[in-house]
């Protein structure tokens, strides 16, 4: 089997954790990061504490990977935060945290990750959300940061294609993680009713799209965003 090197941000829990465990189970090497330590232990796993919005921390993490592994094959920009609030009552600090973690973090990892990916090519996966195309009330800032990530995906796909780096994006529906635990049940029901397929997303749905993007056979696919659930 072709052992690949995955860098997965925000993998202490939720989708990121599930992805790390999955790719480790497939025999790949995984480097994960999050703002606090991880209890995931595996011989092929390294975890670093890293705030994705901290430029120096991101640079040192990528330097660590370059020194140890020489390359990154797949970068999964999973780290993100959500916050529901009416725009009239959204504090600036919340706005800033969302922009920093979701948009700036994705940008920094694309920039630094691509610097070592450019020698062997690679695959970058970013995370949007169905809240972006659905224009969900209460998610103006969160959805806007994700819409920005979709645009970042498209343009960086163009700029990085000459380095054989493909950049794509996935827009999951709600998946049962901490990210949506504070969202009222009726809001989730309403959201699900606007999907073509009316159910919560599963980790496997996300893995399936990522595997599709990273497949050798998908070498003509870049700059795309796939939304789950028929949104």
């Amino acid at each position: 089997m072709n052992k690949k090197i995955y860098l997965i941000t925000g993998d202490r829990k939720g989708i990121g954790r599930s992805l790390s465990e999955y790719y480790l189970s497939k025999g790949h090497l995984v480097i994960g990061c999050s703002r606090s330590g991880s209890d995931l232990v595996h011989k092929n796993y390294d975890h670093k504490i890293c705030d994705v919005a901290d430029e120096n921390a991101v640079k040192y993490l990528v330097l660590f990977i370059r020194k140890k592994h020489k390359r990154i094959d797949v970068l999964i920009n999973n780290a993100g935060m959500a916050s529901m609030n009416h725009i009239l009552t959204t504090p600036v600090i919340t706005f800033q945290k969302l922009v920093d973690t979701n948009f700036k973090g994705t940008f920094l990892f694309i920039r630094e990750g691509s610097k070592i990916m450019r020698k062997n090519g690679g695959c970058i996966i970013n995370f949007s959300t169905v809240a972006s195309p659905l224009n969900l009330e209460g998610e103006a800032i969160y959805a806007s940061t994700k819409a920005a990530i979709e645009k970042l995906t498209k343009i960086s796909a163009h700029e990085l294609s000459s380095f054989n780096i493909r950049v794509n994006c996935i827009g999951p529906t709600p998946v049962l993680t901490d990210l949506i635990k504070a969202v009222p049940k009726n809001k989730i029901e309403k959201l699900l009713s606007s999907q073509a397929i009316k159910r919560l997303g599963r980790f496997d749905d996300v893995k399936n799209v990522i595997n599709f993007y990273c497949s050798e056979k998908s070498n003509f696919i870049t700059g795309q965003t796939i939304f789950l659930g028929g949104v």
Binding site: E55, N56, K59, Y60, L63, R66, K115, R118
Partner: peptide
């Protein structure tokens, strides 16, 4: 490409991690 390679060169030669 030069800028990226120079950053790597500086890291490897002088142990400085700069943008």
């Amino acid at each position: 490409t030069l800028i990226v390679e120079l950053e790597e060169f500086l890291e490897d030669e002088y142990n400085v991690n700069i943008t």
